[in-house]
Design a protein around this nucleic acid. Structure first.
Lengths: 294, 294
DNA sequence: ATATATCCATAGTTTAAAACTATAGAAAGG
DNA sequence: CCTTTCTATAGTTTTAAACTATGGATATAT
């Protein structure tokens, strides 16, 4: 049994066809037939049920498939690492991040570019714990900036900074008259909030719960920019992480603090504990950490 | 790059010699030289430093070695699983366990033998969290009985039962006169206890701490049987898990309860979450769980 | 109903690569 | 200085993975 056979097997399962898989693998169909037959003989199990039109995995085949995918992923990851070890000082650093990353990252990147002028940086939005774990495990990126601690043995989460949430209201909103705004004042307000699955939503709803106020959710959005626009149009109020202050400020909206101490989030940097990271990546992580230590 | 090359590379690293490794691998030395040269060419790194008398890993080689070992372990584990899927109803079940396992396991095994008469059971003593994790990860056993929860994402720990610790004293000991024994009474006593690294030691010392008593450790032992013998000889007192009651009772020793509620341990059953376990193993685990549910 | 296309299996052949043997060259030990 | 030990090189054999050609089965179209 070797990895070649596993790769073949996996491709067949994906394509549900020998001939299609053979094309993708750039080999002839009989070669593929042969390889799988040898594999089945070796493990002494039928892995695939070839019935009229279409293939199906047997029970053993299903287990075998799961293991094979995991094994091949690890093998590919090893090759990625080796590739990265070659290109010292050049190559690409891939980062997964939350939206607010853009507010502070440019300040760090300027310095870093002087040290490593040939490094290319790629940023992808990665939200939610599961997505973060997958992003790192698949070696899609070297590290992520996330707004929740990642609960996984193979992943290290380092807290970077805490930030409060602030309230964004239309300039004509009556809340604007009040000196101090509490959660009770938000009870009747039409609230604009992230859709389910986003951590900011959970953070905010948890705060409502802790303050014993029922949120009146009016509109659910995916991007916080949308929330800002809606407030601008006078369609409701929204709650944003502090770092959005600069970008949220427009002629018709006003930023207000909420008088509470339950509305705060921590932003983390997460990476795989036992992945080899190039000196450039380590340096960048170090820069980010020291930026927030001050 | 294929697993064959990784296997070759690993063997060379272990043997620190091409020719020795070639013998172990049952191939000729030039074949091995050739394989490694091709590997090095492919990854474009020198992996081994062949200097006069003896080999050394390069830095890249070291990282490569770690990954290779992990990959090969997983590959071998997959083959073990396949092998086990073949022998349904026969084969061997391997269990790692703490000492006190022997007190209750025979009661369960009798029933199990009727259901699966062809299954062979192998028990090995596996103590300490690290050893348990390793034992499971290396596929040395199907599950373990342990006296501490295993803190690992890939391992499931199920609590089986709680048991109190009891005090074993010599029949002439003055503690024997007392109606109720507290931790304060143990302050001056010469204590026989497990050596560092055993969970029973930690459990007992934690209780001393919580009761604000300084233990007077007189003798450190590896096996609890040794502790019993020492008490028998009148050399001190010891604290044992309850399940030892029957085996500890000898003419010259007396079992006493300690009046406290901080001296207790939980025994767990731990297994790898995503390992395939044969129906026989599942049944045995089920039997154990239901035995303690009553 | 018959033709056609699609799909996997089988047979035989070619080609690539992993093994082998024999041997050379370097370095350490007696 | 000779012997031993070790890895590398050269050339050959053997293994096995690829190929082409083709057959039989089944579903879809005419």
């Amino acid at each position: 049994m070797d990895l070649r056979q596993l790769r073949y097997f996996i491709t067949i399962v994906h394509e549900k066809s020998y001939s299609k898989a053979a094309k993708i693998l750039h080999i002839s169909q009989p070669s593929l037939s042969n390889a799988i037959m040898k594999l089945e003989k070796e493990v002494s199990f039928q892995l695939l049920e070839r019935n009229t039109r279409g293939l199906e995995l047997t029970e053993a085949g299903g287990i075998f498939y799961t293991r094979s995918v995991d094994l091949l992923r690890r093998f590919n990851n090893m090759q990625v690492e080796l590739e990265e070890m070659k290109q010292v000082g050049s190559g690409t650093i891939s980062i997964g991040s939350i939206e607010s990353f853009k507010f502070w990252f440019p300040k760090i990147i300027r310095n870093f570019k002087i040290l490593y002028p040939n490094i290319h940086i790629k940023v992808k939005e990665v939200l939610g714990e599961e997505k973060v774990i997958d992003f790192l495990n698949q070696y899609n990126g070297h590290f992520t900036i996330t707004n929740q601690p990642i609960n996984n043995d193979e992943i290290m989460s380092i807290p970077l900074y805490n930030e409060k949430f602030i309230l964004l209201v239309h300039k004509d909103d009556d809340l604007n008259e009040k000196g101090s705004i509490t959660f009770q004042d938000l009870a009747g307000k039409e609230l604009i909030i992230s859709t389910t699955g986003f951590q900011t939503r959970d953070d905010i709803l948890k705060a409502f719960k802790e303050e014993n106020v029922n949120p009146n959710i009016f509109y659910e959005i995916e991007r916080l920019e949308t929330a800002c626009s809606l407030v601008e149009e006078g369609l409701g109020v929204t709650i944003l992480p502090e770092s959005y202050i600069k970008s949220a400020v427009t002629p018709n909206t006003v930023i207000r603090a909420i008088d509470t101490n339950v509305l705060e989030r921590t932003v983390y940097l997460a990476y795989l504990k036992d992945r080899y990271l190039s000196p450039a990546v380590c340096k960048l992580v170090e820069e980010i950490r020291s930026f927030f230590k001050m």
